[in-house]
Amino acid sequence: MLIKVTRPTDIKSSEITPKSVFLNRRKFLKTAAVAGAGLAVGQLLPDQAWAGRKLDGIVKGRFATDEEQTSFMSVTSYNNFYEFGTDKNDPVKNSGAFKAKPWTVEIAGECEKPGTYAFEDVIKPHRLEERIYRLRCVEAWSMVVPWVGVPLGDVIKRFAPTSAAKYVAFETIVRPEEMPGQKRPILPWPYVEGLRMDEAMNPLTLLAVGLYGEELLNQNGAPIRLVLPWKYGFKSIKSIVKITFTEKEPPCTWNQQASHEYGFYANVNPQVDHPRWSQAKERRIGEFFKRETLMFNGYADEVASLYSGLDLQRYY
């Protein structure tokens, strides 16, 4: 049972400035800046800084949790995206110069239709769905995010992977001049991730292009990222530029960095502790009390069968 603890200090939803008003005010400021100080100042305030463009034609997808959604503010200001810095608010502060358009995704490896595809060509043939998923970070905090995207499985089918394709590898873009975190070897760049083919094809697996009905902001992995709600957040790789079908298990950045702490699977599992955090509980952002973490982050019905017979203590 979910119990929402309401505190007297909670802001009533009626008190929150409607987004349209908020944005209009920004627009006014921007216009004023342009008028007052010339175009240059206006260009310093790109639309990207506060809101993505609205996405059209979104249909309600399956798998929508009715839990309270984490505020847009928190979802877009509390991020782990080391390409922009290691503090939680570094991505929102340092991602202003990142250009998510135009964008291409290279498809490579064991498939019949490799090549470099424009972002639009990857996404357009599919219908955008809203998926309201729980997100569980390996650091024991969690959110509920209304993502917008397309099922990865549908996209993968179009590239016709061959029977040799047992895994799918993903790669984040490297652009140190736009991603200040990449100027130092905090992690070996590019950030890489991988899934087993059946995990990639699972209906839960989402290739996200937006959240809260709008295009992804840079700090959230614009323009295209994975969302794997039953795995710890770091598996949901951001700003993807390359997808490779492979026969062997592909390397994963955090697994390479500290294999005793981060496994290839990284399934949310309250019984297997991270050496530095208990995974039994989590703090939902915006709440005071911790809550119990659910096996596979509550998605056992959809994904538990993928791992039957696998020793989850060993393959964490």
Binding site: S74, K88, N89, R283, I285
Partner: peptide, 13 residues
Amino acid sequence: LAVSGGLGANPIE
């Protein structure tokens, strides 16, 4: 920081 919202989305941490 506490009264101005400067503690961010995860004030306990």
